[in-house]
Design a protein around this nucleic acid. Structure first.
Lengths: 229, 229
DNA sequence: TTTTGTGAACTAGTTCACAGCT
DNA sequence: AGCTGTGAACTAGTTCACAAAA
């Protein structure tokens, strides 16, 4: 609407570099991409926000608003071209390239994550595991991911261009390890340890807190009993 | 001064059964409990919301407001008694009892979760794994959790009083499996499969979506490059 | 017509600031 | 004095509803 530029590729808004996009929005972009993958697999060429919302239990206005932060990808009277929108979302999410991932902690969880099929997806590539136990260093996960010495993290991070670290270490080691990760120049961390981690500005941490999740379910169960009583 | 044998709690507000408490609040209750555990371990007897906020990077007013949904646990001029508040939080979160947990899917992830130390905590007890592969049924996880036939889920759920199911199955099986879980009378599900699950009212699903988490980190990295450019 | 993109209205969540209790 | 509990103010997020475009 603002752009007079009527080219087929809808030039991304200047908004993109100026406005702060909420994490709730970016999480949904990821969900939209997944929906589009399904739609494309089922042969759909176009989809309206209305149809997308109905099919995947979302809100149509929210879909449009989320997308509108990044450009005008739709066609009025038609909807969105599935293939086009997919491409745009992949670009917005930075998935139009390889993303090197390492997993720190070659315990049960780390090894499981290394071979988790849902994890090896889109542009992500799990390049290495790291641990401090000498008995593990030099071994490989079942799927073949090599286990290196945590002390060599910086070296490998640079050489293999690792951009995301997944933390699967005991709680007691978490802060120490994330400091090493930051030191190795890695700017994005997916943390499975409970509790908050201190990192400098410019480093992003996302935490999956299993204790909080379970306790929240417990609350729900306890509450349900009260209500029913 | 302090609880002598205060069996009757400072009468929980009638609010408790009436008002709808946000999930953000219940997640934070879990975090507060963790903080209190740390504080108690370090010998603190009382803590003010201010001190709690400073020490754990929270907001004092929010702590007070969150707690106030459930009762008046503080003492003006003093703060909160650590041990008392811990007890109240455990009761609110329904952790003052055993909670039977099962894990569905005895693949890498399911087996790792069964033995994950952070998982066996508070009132939670991982009682069983379930799978449909005959080669796995009858075996045990390293930590000793038995693997049963998914078809016997209902039987075991009743016998062992399982109240929470953790789903660690392939995406393609997720909806089918959650239907079995619901059918077995389980009312709370922690889902590790990507994508939404349909469940009837009265069943609570919490999802940990690793794809969304990773893609959100990727977005952050891509955005960072744009900003810096 | 259909459907987008978006201001406006609404709802939810957070933080402020202070009366009132200890 | 110190600190809680809470209305009020503020901020963030969602949904509505409609003008404009295809």
């Amino acid at each position: 609407m603002k752009t007079r530029n009527t080219v087929s590729t809808p030039s991304p808004k200047s908004k993109q570099s100026l406005e702060q996009v909420s994490e709730l929005t970016t999480n949904r972009l990821s969900i939209y991409l997944r929906c589009l993958n399904e739609l494309e697999a089922s042969g759909a060429r176009t989809i309206s926000s209305q149809a997308l919302a109905e099919q995947f239990d979302l809100n149509a206005a929210q879909i449009r608003k989320d997308l509108a932060y990044f450009g005008e990808f739709g066609v009025r009277g038609v909807g969105y071209y599935v293939r086009d929108l997919k491409r745009h979302l992949r670009q917005i999410l930075g998935l139009d390239r390889r993303l090197g991932v390492c997993i720190i902690g070659a315990g049960n969880l780390g090894l499981a994550l290394a071979d988790y099929p849902g994890f090896v997806q889109e542009g992500f590539e799990i390049l290495a595991l790291f641990d401090n136990q000498t008995s593990k260093i030099g071994q490989r996960s079942r799927g073949g991911t090599p286990i290196y010495d945590i002390l060599d993290l910086r070296k490998h991070a640079r050489r293999d261009n690792i951009s995301i670290a997944v933390l699967a270490v005991p709680t007691s080691a978490a802060q120490l390890v994330v400091d090493l990760v930051v030191d190795a120049g890695i700017k994005a961390v997916l943390n499975f340890s409970p509790g908050a981690l201190k990192v400098p500005d410019g480093v992003k941490v996302k935490s999956v807190d299993l204790t909080v999740s379970l306790e929240s379910l417990s609350f729900y169960l306890a509450r349900g009993e009260i209500v029913r009583a």
